[in-house]
Write a protein that binds this DNA or RNA. Structure first.
Length: 265
DNA sequence: AGATTCGGCGT
DNA sequence: ACGCCGAATCT
């Protein structure tokens, strides 16, 4: 059997690459590529390799199949992103069939995308918690006070009414700060939002505050509230569907009108 | 049990 | 068409 393990110059010394041809089945003739660490551990995919090497090796332009660095390979979906942006820049509507499914209600808070890479001769903390665990000011939510959302005509949008069960913790119990705090919490962490569960936090928030939770008293959500929310979402989706339908019909009508006016040159 | 191998899902 | 990984099969 061809068990040839070759050196892989793109990887640190000691790493070996192996290619195994499939010899039967539907995929006969195709091949699988494996890598072996200096200690002999086998790796069968780029994600697996990447997880193991962490920040010590930048695999961004590493081609797993060939085992070589391919400088042109950086950001595979760059082309598509440019494509979508071009359409958008031209004033076109996003093509709902082809655009990437990005939340249009994306957070105004920057997601952590910092890439930590080590370079020879300098030290980089390889602390994975870093991105999500940066130091935060106590009561930082207060800086959101007075911020309002507005539509394109700068008309301030009616603020949301919060259920009575939601009450803020701490000195200023102001409803729109509370809303901002909760919205921020939902955007900044995937952990469940429970509010401040410790009773002590109410007496002396400066000491007992759970900083990973918004300035909000502990609350519970009833089945009834969940059903109400489901209904709202359902109705919102229906009107969105109708709006999109109307939009595409109008567009089609406009196109056929241009056609009959003989604009084709 | 560990290694090898191909299927098949998701993109 | 292909990367990735589950799981059947082999040793």
């Amino acid at each position: 059997m061809e068990k040839r393990r070759s050196d892989c110059p793109a990887l640190p010394p000691g790493w070996k690459k192996e290619e195994v041809i499939r010899k039967s089945g539907l995929s006969a003739g195709k091949s699988d590529v494996y890598y072996y660490s200096p200690t002999g551990k086998k790796f069968r995919s780029k994600p697996q390799l990447s997880r193991y090497l962490g920040n010590s090796v930048d695999l961004a332009c590493f081609d797993f199949r060939t085992g070589k660095m391919m400088p042109g390979k950086l950001q595979k979906n760059k082309q598509r992103l440019r494509h979508d942006q071009l359409i958008l820049a031209k004033g076109g509507k996003p093509d709902l069939n082809t655009t990437l499914p990005i939340r249009q209600t994306a957070s105004i808070f920057k997601q952590p995308v910092t890439k930590v890479t080590s370079h020879p001769g300098n030290k980089v903390k390889t602390d994975l918690q870093r991105a999500t665990e940066q130091p935060r000011q106590l009561f930082w939510e207060r800086r959101l006070k007075g911020l309002r959302s507005s539509d394109v005509s700068e008309e301030v949008l009616r603020t949301m009414e919060l259920p009575k069960g939601l009450q803020s913790v701490g000195l200023n119990s102001n409803d729109d700060t509370l809303l901002s705090a909760i919205a921020s919490a939902l955007h900044m962490s995937s952990a469940p939002i429970t509010g401040q569960t410790s009773v002590a936090a109410e007496k002396n928030p400066a000491i007992w505050l759970n900083t990973s939770q918004p300035l909000c008293k502990a609350f519970s959500v009833t089945d009834e509230q969940i059903r109400e929310q489901e209904l709202k979402v359902h109705q919102a989706r229906r009107s969105l569907e109708e709006a999109l339908m109307a939009h595409s019909l109008a567009r089609a009508a406009e196109n056929s009108k241009e056609m009959s006016e003989g604009k084709a040159a």
